[in-house]
Design a protein around this nucleic acid. Structure first.
Length: 189
DNA sequence: GCAAGGATATCG
DNA sequence: GATATCCTTGCA
């Protein structure tokens, strides 16, 4: 599991920095809803709105470790593959690497902008957050933190703020960023 | 290393 | 209305 916090309009790394726009409106909406956006023209990214109406904060879901429905997830990844070579690599991936990136999370769970603003707490919603089963949770003392990924444009202190949270022992964290963490020491909470 | 890819915010 | 930029990924 890997998450990044974007804390409000003052956060220069957040989409909300431009204020409320058509795209970022969900971030200003009620908590517990989804904010899904297109990045780099081809990948969707899933966020969970965290603050009450009017305050634009959200958690970006950068990676998760699938525990169930591995075949479904693998098929979802295969369906979007652009070549046989890519399908082969997907088949060879361990389950823990099937959603190890913000774009991959959405590919794995078929999250699209159609899920934008979905109520993640409504049992009838197509996309939901559910309480983890006993044994699936991680102790707070084992959660590592580091600066956020891909926010160099934001300037300080937004670049260096340690607002990326992840399980340092899990293979299910985004690849390139996992490598950089070793160099720029990730501290533990 | 770098291209692909399209929406968005910003500038004119 | 044009364009620089982007909370990325997979392949050369």
């Amino acid at each position: 599991m890997e998450l990044e916090a974007y804390i409000g309009e003052d956060d220069h790394a957040s989409h909300a920095r431009a204020g409320r726009t058509a795209r970022t409106a969900p971030m200003f909406g009620p908590p517990g809803h989804a904010y899904v956006y297109l990045v780099y023209g081809m990948y969707d990214c899933l966020n969970v709105v965290t603050e009450p109406d009017g305050r634009a904060a959200a958690l970006l879901v950068r990676a998760v470790e699938p525990l169930e429905g591995i075949d479904e997830i693998r098929n979802a990844r295969r369906a979007r593959a652009r070549s046989d070579a890519e399908r082969g690599r997907i088949d060879a991936l361990p389950a823990a690497r099937l959603a190890s990136g913000p774009g991959l999370v959405c590919l794995a769970f078929s999250v699209t902008r159609a899920d934008n603003e979905a109520d993640l707490c409504d049992p009838g919603s197509s996309l939901r957050l559910e309480r983890s089963r006993a044994g699936d949770s991680i102790e707070g003392s084992r959660i590592a933190v580091s600066p956020r990924v891909g926010v160099a444009y934001a300037g300080e202190p937004w670049i260096s703020n340690p607002w990326r949270f992840f399980d340092p022992d899990s293979p299910a964290v985004s690849g390139r960023s996992a490598a950089t963490v070793g160099a720029a020491p990730a501290t533990r909470l």
